[in-house]
Amino acid sequence: MSAFNAIGDERETDRDEYTPGVEPQPTWCPGCGDFSVLKSLKQALPEVGRNPEEVLTVTGIGCSGKLNSYLDTYGFHTIHGRALPVARAAKLANPDLEVIAAGGDGDGYGIGGNHFIHSARENHDITYIVFNNEIFGLTKGQTSPTSPKGHKSKTQPSGSAKTPIRPLSQSLTAGASYVARTAAVNPNQAKEIIAEAIEHDGFAHVDFLTQCPTWNKDARQYVPYVDVQDSDDYDFDVTDREEAAEMMRETENVLNEGTVLTGRYYVDEDRPSYTEEKRAVGEMPDEPLAERYFDDDAEWERSYDLLDRHK
Protein backbone atom coordinates (compact mmCIF):
# COMPACT_ATOMS: atom_id res chain seq x y z
CA MET A 1 0.00 0.00 0.00
CA SER A 2 1.33 3.38 -0.92
CA ALA A 3 1.82 6.18 1.57
CA PHE A 4 1.39 8.63 -1.31
CA ASN A 5 -2.11 8.10 -2.61
CA ALA A 6 -2.27 11.29 -4.62
CA ILE A 7 0.27 9.70 -6.95
CA GLY A 8 -1.39 7.84 -9.79
CA ASP A 9 -4.86 8.91 -8.71
CA GLU A 10 -6.33 9.22 -12.18
CA ARG A 11 -9.37 11.30 -11.44
CA GLU A 12 -10.35 14.10 -13.84
CA THR A 13 -9.06 17.52 -12.88
CA ASP A 14 -9.52 20.96 -14.33
CA ARG A 15 -7.67 24.23 -14.24
CA ASP A 16 -9.67 25.52 -11.28
CA GLU A 17 -8.14 22.87 -9.09
CA TYR A 18 -4.75 24.39 -9.80
CA THR A 19 -5.95 27.82 -8.73
CA PRO A 20 -5.61 28.49 -4.99
CA GLY A 21 -9.02 29.33 -3.51
CA VAL A 22 -7.49 32.12 -1.54
CA GLU A 23 -5.38 33.22 -4.43
CA PRO A 24 -2.67 35.62 -3.42
CA GLN A 25 -2.72 38.73 -5.53
CA PRO A 26 -0.08 38.09 -8.20
CA THR A 27 2.88 40.39 -7.86
CA TRP A 28 3.38 40.28 -11.63
CA CYS A 29 2.77 43.53 -13.53
CA PRO A 30 -0.14 43.88 -15.94
CA GLY A 31 0.92 42.55 -19.34
CA CYS A 32 3.69 40.36 -17.86
CA GLY A 33 4.51 37.20 -19.82
CA ASP A 34 4.66 35.19 -16.60
CA PHE A 35 0.85 34.94 -16.54
CA SER A 36 1.09 32.90 -19.70
CA VAL A 37 3.37 30.28 -18.10
CA LEU A 38 0.92 29.92 -15.24
CA LYS A 39 -1.99 29.61 -17.61
CA SER A 40 -0.34 27.03 -19.82
CA LEU A 41 0.56 24.90 -16.80
CA LYS A 42 -3.01 25.10 -15.52
CA GLN A 43 -4.17 23.86 -18.91
CA ALA A 44 -1.50 21.27 -19.52
CA LEU A 45 -1.56 19.53 -16.14
CA PRO A 46 -5.23 18.42 -16.30
CA GLU A 47 -4.73 17.51 -19.92
CA VAL A 48 -1.91 15.09 -19.13
CA GLY A 49 -3.94 13.69 -16.25
CA ARG A 50 -2.03 14.93 -13.25
CA ASN A 51 -3.68 16.01 -10.02
CA PRO A 52 -2.32 18.86 -7.88
CA GLU A 53 -0.99 16.67 -5.08
CA GLU A 54 1.20 14.46 -7.21
CA VAL A 55 2.95 17.49 -8.66
CA LEU A 56 5.87 19.26 -6.98
CA THR A 57 6.67 22.66 -8.47
CA VAL A 58 10.13 23.83 -7.48
CA THR A 59 11.09 27.42 -8.23
CA GLY A 60 14.05 29.74 -7.86
CA ILE A 61 14.06 33.43 -6.99
CA GLY A 62 12.72 36.31 -9.03
CA CYS A 63 9.31 37.09 -10.49
CA SER A 64 9.31 33.58 -11.95
CA GLY A 65 9.91 32.12 -8.49
CA LYS A 66 6.41 33.20 -7.49
CA LEU A 67 4.92 30.68 -9.90
CA ASN A 68 4.07 28.17 -7.18
CA SER A 69 2.36 30.84 -5.12
CA TYR A 70 -0.30 30.96 -7.83
CA LEU A 71 -0.24 27.34 -8.97
CA ASP A 72 -1.86 25.16 -6.35
CA THR A 73 0.35 22.07 -6.27
CA TYR A 74 2.95 21.03 -3.72
CA GLY A 75 5.50 23.79 -4.01
CA PHE A 76 9.04 24.55 -3.00
CA HIS A 77 10.14 28.12 -3.55
CA THR A 78 13.89 27.70 -3.03
CA ILE A 79 16.80 30.11 -3.35
CA HIS A 80 18.31 31.94 -6.27
CA GLY A 81 19.57 29.51 -8.90
CA ARG A 82 19.06 26.32 -6.89
CA ALA A 83 15.68 25.04 -8.01
CA LEU A 84 17.25 22.28 -10.11
CA PRO A 85 19.29 20.48 -7.45
CA VAL A 86 16.32 20.53 -5.08
CA ALA A 87 14.03 19.25 -7.83
CA ARG A 88 16.43 16.52 -8.93
CA ALA A 89 16.73 15.11 -5.44
CA ALA A 90 12.98 15.14 -4.87
CA LYS A 91 12.64 13.08 -8.03
CA LEU A 92 15.32 10.64 -6.87
CA ALA A 93 13.66 10.34 -3.46
CA ASN A 94 10.27 9.67 -4.97
CA PRO A 95 10.45 9.02 -8.75
CA ASP A 96 6.67 8.75 -9.00
CA LEU A 97 6.26 12.47 -8.30
CA GLU A 98 5.74 14.80 -11.24
CA VAL A 99 8.50 17.33 -10.71
CA ILE A 100 8.47 20.68 -12.47
CA ALA A 101 11.28 23.16 -11.92
CA ALA A 102 11.06 26.79 -12.97
CA GLY A 103 13.09 29.97 -12.77
CA GLY A 104 14.14 33.00 -14.71
CA ASP A 105 17.00 33.53 -17.16
CA GLY A 106 19.22 35.03 -14.48
CA ASP A 107 18.32 32.22 -12.12
CA GLY A 108 18.84 29.37 -14.57
CA TYR A 109 21.45 30.60 -17.04
CA GLY A 110 23.39 32.86 -14.69
CA ILE A 111 23.69 32.03 -11.01
CA GLY A 112 22.36 28.49 -11.51
CA GLY A 113 24.18 27.83 -14.76
CA ASN A 114 26.29 25.04 -13.34
CA HIS A 115 23.20 23.18 -12.13
CA PHE A 116 21.53 23.68 -15.50
CA ILE A 117 24.44 22.07 -17.33
CA HIS A 118 24.66 19.13 -14.97
CA SER A 119 20.92 18.52 -14.72
CA ALA A 120 20.72 18.39 -18.52
CA ARG A 121 23.83 16.22 -18.68
CA GLU A 122 22.34 13.72 -16.25
CA ASN A 123 18.94 13.77 -18.00
CA HIS A 124 16.79 13.81 -14.88
CA ASP A 125 13.18 13.14 -15.68
CA ILE A 126 11.93 16.60 -14.79
CA THR A 127 10.50 19.56 -16.67
CA TYR A 128 12.48 22.77 -16.52
CA ILE A 129 10.76 25.98 -17.56
CA VAL A 130 12.90 29.09 -17.89
CA PHE A 131 11.01 32.37 -17.90
CA ASN A 132 13.25 34.22 -20.33
CA ASN A 133 12.57 37.96 -20.42
CA GLU A 134 16.16 38.96 -21.17
CA ILE A 135 16.31 41.11 -18.05
CA PHE A 136 16.44 41.02 -14.26
CA GLY A 137 12.91 42.10 -13.46
CA LEU A 138 12.37 41.87 -9.71
CA THR A 139 15.56 43.79 -8.96
CA LYS A 140 14.36 46.46 -11.38
CA GLY A 141 15.93 46.06 -14.74
CA GLN A 142 19.57 45.00 -14.74
CA THR A 143 21.19 43.28 -17.69
CA SER A 144 20.79 39.50 -17.60
CA PRO A 145 22.70 36.62 -19.26
CA THR A 146 20.24 36.68 -22.16
CA SER A 147 20.18 40.46 -22.64
CA PRO A 148 21.29 41.42 -26.13
CA LYS A 149 24.72 42.88 -26.68
CA GLY A 150 24.58 46.63 -26.33
CA HIS A 151 21.60 46.46 -23.98
CA LYS A 152 21.65 49.50 -21.73
CA SER A 153 20.63 49.19 -18.11
CA LYS A 154 21.39 50.75 -14.76
CA THR A 155 24.30 48.38 -14.29
CA GLN A 156 25.52 48.58 -17.90
CA PRO A 157 24.90 52.27 -18.63
CA SER A 158 26.95 52.25 -21.81
CA GLY A 159 25.43 49.06 -23.10
CA SER A 160 26.38 45.47 -22.40
CA ALA A 161 29.71 44.38 -23.89
CA LYS A 162 28.70 40.73 -23.64
CA THR A 163 27.00 38.60 -26.23
CA PRO A 164 24.00 36.79 -24.78
CA ILE A 165 24.08 33.19 -23.72
CA ARG A 166 22.69 30.59 -26.14
CA PRO A 167 20.27 28.67 -23.94
CA LEU A 168 19.00 26.19 -26.52
CA SER A 169 22.43 25.29 -27.88
CA GLN A 170 23.82 25.00 -24.38
CA SER A 171 21.01 22.72 -23.32
CA LEU A 172 21.54 20.43 -26.31
CA THR A 173 25.30 20.27 -25.79
CA ALA A 174 24.86 19.54 -22.11
CA GLY A 175 22.56 16.60 -22.84
CA ALA A 176 18.92 17.63 -22.48
CA SER A 177 16.67 15.16 -24.29
CA TYR A 178 13.82 17.60 -24.98
CA VAL A 179 14.50 21.24 -25.89
CA ALA A 180 11.84 23.73 -26.96
CA ARG A 181 11.19 27.44 -27.02
CA THR A 182 7.81 29.01 -26.76
CA ALA A 183 6.51 32.50 -26.11
CA ALA A 184 3.92 34.03 -23.84
CA VAL A 185 2.18 35.53 -26.81
CA ASN A 186 1.60 32.08 -28.29
CA PRO A 187 -0.65 30.40 -25.69
CA ASN A 188 -1.76 27.40 -27.71
CA GLN A 189 1.74 26.38 -28.62
CA ALA A 190 2.88 27.07 -25.06
CA LYS A 191 0.28 24.74 -23.61
CA GLU A 192 1.14 21.99 -26.08
CA ILE A 193 4.86 22.28 -25.48
CA ILE A 194 4.45 22.31 -21.70
CA ALA A 195 2.26 19.19 -21.93
CA GLU A 196 4.83 17.43 -24.11
CA ALA A 197 7.64 18.45 -21.76
CA ILE A 198 5.78 17.00 -18.77
CA GLU A 199 5.11 13.77 -20.62
CA HIS A 200 8.72 13.47 -21.81
CA ASP A 201 10.82 10.91 -19.91
CA GLY A 202 14.02 12.84 -19.38
CA PHE A 203 15.23 16.39 -18.91
CA ALA A 204 12.75 18.60 -20.78
CA HIS A 205 13.90 22.18 -21.10
CA VAL A 206 11.46 24.86 -22.21
CA ASP A 207 12.87 28.32 -22.83
CA PHE A 208 9.73 30.41 -22.39
CA LEU A 209 9.94 33.95 -23.76
CA THR A 210 8.07 36.11 -21.26
CA GLN A 211 8.01 39.77 -22.10
CA CYS A 212 8.71 42.22 -19.28
CA PRO A 213 6.57 45.30 -20.00
CA THR A 214 8.03 47.22 -17.08
CA TRP A 215 11.78 46.84 -17.24
CA ASN A 216 12.42 45.70 -20.77
CA LYS A 217 10.36 48.15 -22.78
CA ASP A 218 13.00 48.21 -25.49
CA ALA A 219 12.48 44.55 -26.21
CA ARG A 220 9.80 43.53 -28.64
CA GLN A 221 6.83 41.71 -27.18
CA TYR A 222 8.01 38.64 -29.06
CA VAL A 223 5.61 39.28 -31.93
CA PRO A 224 5.35 38.33 -34.63
CA TYR A 225 6.48 34.87 -33.72
CA VAL A 226 7.12 31.99 -36.05
CA ASP A 227 6.48 28.35 -35.18
CA VAL A 228 9.32 26.53 -36.88
CA GLN A 229 7.22 23.41 -37.19
CA ASP A 230 4.42 25.27 -39.00
CA SER A 231 6.54 27.46 -41.22
CA ASP A 232 7.52 26.45 -44.73
CA ASP A 233 10.73 28.43 -44.33
CA TYR A 234 12.23 25.92 -41.94
CA ASP A 235 12.63 22.23 -42.40
CA PHE A 236 14.64 20.15 -39.97
CA ASP A 237 14.40 16.88 -38.11
CA VAL A 238 13.91 17.37 -34.33
CA THR A 239 15.42 13.94 -33.67
CA ASP A 240 18.62 14.79 -35.52
CA ARG A 241 21.18 16.37 -33.23
CA GLU A 242 23.12 18.18 -36.01
CA GLU A 243 20.03 19.62 -37.65
CA ALA A 244 18.64 20.63 -34.26
CA ALA A 245 21.91 22.35 -33.38
CA GLU A 246 21.85 24.33 -36.60
CA MET A 247 18.24 25.39 -36.10
CA MET A 248 18.94 26.45 -32.52
CA ARG A 249 21.87 28.54 -33.60
CA GLU A 250 19.80 30.25 -36.24
CA THR A 251 17.02 30.88 -33.70
CA GLU A 252 19.44 32.42 -31.21
CA ASN A 253 21.09 34.52 -33.92
CA VAL A 254 17.90 36.14 -35.16
CA LEU A 255 16.09 36.74 -31.86
CA ASN A 256 17.74 40.08 -31.24
CA GLU A 257 17.20 41.08 -34.84
CA GLY A 258 13.47 40.87 -34.33
CA THR A 259 12.64 37.43 -35.64
CA VAL A 260 11.07 35.30 -32.92
CA LEU A 261 11.41 31.63 -33.77
CA THR A 262 9.71 29.11 -31.49
CA GLY A 263 8.81 25.44 -31.45
CA ARG A 264 10.34 22.05 -30.68
CA TYR A 265 14.04 21.90 -31.40
CA TYR A 266 15.27 18.59 -30.14
CA VAL A 267 13.46 15.46 -29.01
CA ASP A 268 15.30 12.29 -28.06
CA GLU A 269 12.91 9.61 -26.84
CA ASP A 270 15.60 6.94 -26.69
CA ARG A 271 17.97 8.37 -24.14
CA PRO A 272 17.32 6.69 -20.76
CA SER A 273 16.47 9.03 -17.92
CA TYR A 274 18.88 9.39 -15.03
CA THR A 275 16.73 7.20 -12.80
CA GLU A 276 16.90 4.42 -15.38
CA GLU A 277 20.65 4.86 -15.77
CA LYS A 278 21.17 4.76 -12.04
CA ARG A 279 19.02 1.67 -11.67
CA ALA A 280 20.95 0.01 -14.49
CA VAL A 281 24.21 0.33 -12.56
CA GLY A 282 22.56 -0.90 -9.38
CA GLU A 283 22.71 2.36 -7.44
CA MET A 284 19.03 3.13 -7.13
CA PRO A 285 16.22 1.01 -5.67
CA ASP A 286 13.33 -0.08 -7.90
CA GLU A 287 10.71 1.07 -5.42
CA PRO A 288 10.50 4.76 -4.49
CA LEU A 289 12.83 5.31 -1.56
CA ALA A 290 10.28 7.58 0.15
CA GLU A 291 7.79 4.69 0.40
CA ARG A 292 10.15 2.58 2.47
CA TYR A 293 9.87 4.84 5.50
CA PHE A 294 6.15 4.09 5.71
CA ASP A 295 6.51 0.35 5.21
CA ASP A 296 6.16 -1.33 8.58
CA ASP A 297 7.57 -4.57 7.20
CA ALA A 298 10.71 -2.98 5.77
CA GLU A 299 13.88 -4.51 7.10
CA TRP A 300 16.46 -1.87 7.78
CA GLU A 301 20.09 -2.88 7.39
CA ARG A 302 22.32 -2.35 10.41
CA SER A 303 25.94 -1.29 10.72
CA TYR A 304 26.39 -4.22 13.12
CA ASP A 305 26.28 -6.48 10.08
CA LEU A 306 29.12 -4.58 8.40
CA LEU A 307 31.67 -5.10 11.13
CA ASP A 308 33.44 -8.20 9.80
CA ARG A 309 35.69 -6.01 7.70
CA HIS A 310 36.85 -4.25 10.85
CA LYS A 311 37.69 -7.27 12.97
Binding site: L92, L97, L289
Partner: peptide, 8 residues
Amino acid sequence: VGASHAGV
Protein backbone atom coordinates in the same frame (compact mmCIF):
# COMPACT_ATOMS: atom_id res chain seq x y z
CA VAL B 1 17.25 19.43 1.20
CA GLY B 2 15.25 18.23 -1.83
CA ALA B 3 15.48 14.55 -0.86
CA SER B 4 14.49 15.31 2.71
CA HIS B 5 11.60 17.46 1.53
CA ALA B 6 10.33 14.49 -0.49
CA GLY B 7 10.51 12.12 2.48
CA VAL B 8 13.93 10.49 2.70
